[in-house]
Simulated scan of single mutants.
Amino acid sequence: MSSFAESFRELLESMLDKFPFEVLCEMAVRAKLLWHRRNCLVFEDSFSSPARLSKKIQAEVALIRSEAEQRVVKQPKQDLSPQTWTPPPLGVLKANWDVVVDKTNSRVGLGVVIRDSKGLLGATLWACKATLPDPILGEAAAVLRATSLCADLGLTHIVLEGDSLGIVKAVQQTEEWSSVGLMVRDIKLLLSKFSS
């Protein structure tokens, strides 16, 4: 690109690459309020002093910064020690599931990975559901989806593995009367069709 931009778009694109987000945000606020000041003068015959404009710019930028800081959700520190995958016995497939819960948007994301004893990928599935943002409910939905995927694929020898001890215990109990009881009942019904 030459030293002079050929269009406003090129100028803007070069600025987006060069400046940090905070500077670009302040530039956008300045442009918006300058345009608003110009429109007030042209259409309403109302003049606003540069000092007043400067105060408005500072106030709006401060408001944007404080809103951005409030949106940052502090995540609890997790133990990110390396996890190792343990293969299933020969002739058996392992279905691993995991869930992420978005409480703000009442959504649950779930994933399932099926592998053989050599670690070769057999199938994968991911889904995003609008539901109550309950981690236990999300885990139950993931186990149910993993089990139904195995059944749909006609698999008979499977091992299910996930990180929710509460759901594993619920599936192992004789009766479940919690909020996920119906899902656990469906999981057990599907599991009864498998050989292992």
Rank of each mutant, 00 (worst) to 15 (best):
S178H: 07
A170D: 12
R185V: 00
G109D: 10
A151S: 12
L160Q: 05
L110N: 05
D152C: 08
F43R: 11
S179C: 10
A151Q: 11
E22C: 02
T147G: 01
P89Q: 09
V171P: 05
K32C: 11
G166V: 13
L189F: 09
R185P: 03
L137G: 00
K74N: 13
V29L: 07
S179I: 13
P88K: 03
V23P: 05
T124L: 04
A170L: 09
E22R: 13
E6F: 06
K74T: 15
C40H: 09
E44Q: 15
V159F: 03
P135H: 09
L165C: 02
K118S: 12
T131C: 13
K118W: 06
F8Y: 12
P135T: 10
W85D: 08
A5E: 12
K188I: 04
A170Q: 07
L33W: 05
V92D: 02
L63I: 04
L137I: 08
D152W: 02
W177A: 12
L80C: 11
S3W: 09
C150F: 01
P89L: 09
K129I: 10
F21Q: 14
A151W: 11
I114M: 10
A146V: 06
P87H: 04
V101E: 05
S2L: 08
C25H: 03
S14M: 13
K103S: 12
T84W: 07
V171E: 09
W85K: 08
V108H: 01
I57M: 07
L149S: 04
L53A: 04
A95K: 00
T156G: 04
V42T: 06
K103V: 11
L121G: 02
K74Y: 07
L137S: 00
S2E: 13
G138L: 05
A170W: 06
L24A: 07
I114W: 06
L132E: 12
R145P: 00
L121W: 06
M183Q: 13
V180D: 03
P88L: 04
V42Y: 00
G119I: 06
R30F: 05
G138C: 00
V73Y: 06
S192N: 12
A51V: 12
Q75E: 15
S164Q: 01
L121E: 02
R30M: 10
P89F: 01
K129E: 13
R9Q: 15
K188G: 01
E60C: 01
A127S: 13
S48V: 15
P89C: 04
I158G: 02
V112K: 00
L110S: 08
S178C: 07
V42I: 15
Q173P: 03
S196P: 01
L34K: 14
K56A: 13
Q83G: 01
K55L: 14
E22Y: 04
S164L: 00
Q78K: 14
V171A: 08
S48F: 09
P89A: 10
L125C: 00
L132D: 11
C25E: 14
K129Y: 08
I57G: 07
L165Y: 02
W97R: 07
A123E: 13
M1L: 08
S2R: 09
L121Q: 05
L165A: 09
A130I: 12
Q70D: 13
V159A: 06
I114D: 06
A95H: 00
L144H: 11
R30T: 15
K103Y: 01
L160K: 02
V100M: 09
I114H: 02
V112Y: 01
K77L: 14
A62M: 09
L191Q: 05
S7K: 01
L149I: 07
V113S: 03
G91A: 07
E175M: 08
